[in-house]
């Protein structure tokens, strides 16, 4: 009984802390993205090489960063779930996955749109885009495994192991893809947002990155609230079923 209470306590505490924060996170995301759009689309100068096409950077790069950070979060949550069997970590992991996959899709789509004026073609197998595509596969594999089992818990445990395997392997994959790209150097390569970046472009980039991150957090909390409510519904229905007179027969 004490253990059951403990299991309930953590999600309850999470809801108590996270729910009041939610409007602030939403407001922060809106402000950051609003300012970021203003500075990114209006105030910042066009890139001296890429012209106004470089403005795609302000959505592409934050999406890619968050896609990667989301997988890190997925891996950390999975590690916590595996080591400490923390029920909230499993909820967090399964809620991060679809959001991270959506951010990855945004990064791929905007990267492709950006690539067309720069490379003259919609797609180039450049190291960065390829890595993001692999990241999408990792997310989709996680989601597919999560939902493949009849019992939700089995799927969660299996997907946890897969997330950790992916996290261990991801640096190796990244290194391999980078190295592979230098081996097959494309004819014309244009670096996305190199290290030397105009400060006037850095401000909107950072604002948008902050806004995307806050939006990511907002979505994760909303989905965790939904998932926790769903678990509570299932638990209530189970007890109701167990207590109903029909089950005695």
């Amino acid at each position: 009984m004490a253990k059951a209470l403990h299991r309930l306590a953590n999600p309850a505490r999470f809801l108590r802390i996270a729910s009041p924060l939610l409007p602030w996170i939403a407001a922060g995301a809106a402000v950051c993205m609003g300012l970021g759009l203003w500075f990114g689309l209006v105030e910042s100068p066009p890139d001296y090489q890429q012209g106004d096409a470089a403005r795609i950077m302000y959505v592409h790069v934050p999406a890619a960063w968050n896609a990667l950070a989301g997988y890190a979060g997925l891996a950390i949550a999975s590690a916590i779930a595996l080591v400490w069997r923390h029920p909230l970590a499993l909820v967090a992991a399964r809620c991060i996955a679809p959001i991270g996959a959506c951010f990855t899709v945004i990064a791929i789509a905007t990267g492709s749109i950006w690539g067309h004026p720069m490379w003259g073609t919609w797609w180039v197998w450049d190291a960065r885009l390829t890595s993001v595509v692999v990241l999408l596969f990792l997310y989709l594999g996680y989601i597919a495994l999560l939902h493949a089992f009849d019992e939700q818990e089995t799927g969660e445990r299996a997907a946890t192991v897969l997330a950790l395997i992916g996290a261990v392997n991801l640096p190796v994959i990244k290194f391999s893809v980078d190295w592979w790209n230098t081996l097959h150097q494309p004819a014309s390569i244009l670096r996305f947002g190199g290290p030397s970046i105009d400060p006037a472009m850095l401000l909107p980039l950072m604002l948008m990155a902050g806004g995307f991150t806050l939006l990511f957090a907002y979505l994760v909390i909303i989905r965790m609230q939904t998932e926790l409510a769903r678990r509570r519904v299932m638990a209530l229905r189970r007890t109701a079923l167990a207590m109903s007179p029909a089950s005695d027969a």
Partner: peptide, 26 residues
């Protein structure tokens, strides 16, 4: 957008669409 309007606006539109749908669905 200096001739890049179609690219810039479609990139922002796709981003907005996906994020918007994600928020609404959640």
């Amino acid at each position: 957008m200096g001739g890049y309007g179609a690219y810039v606006w479609s990139a922002y539109a796709i981003t907005g669409l996906i994020l918007g749908l994600l928020v609404v669905a959640s």
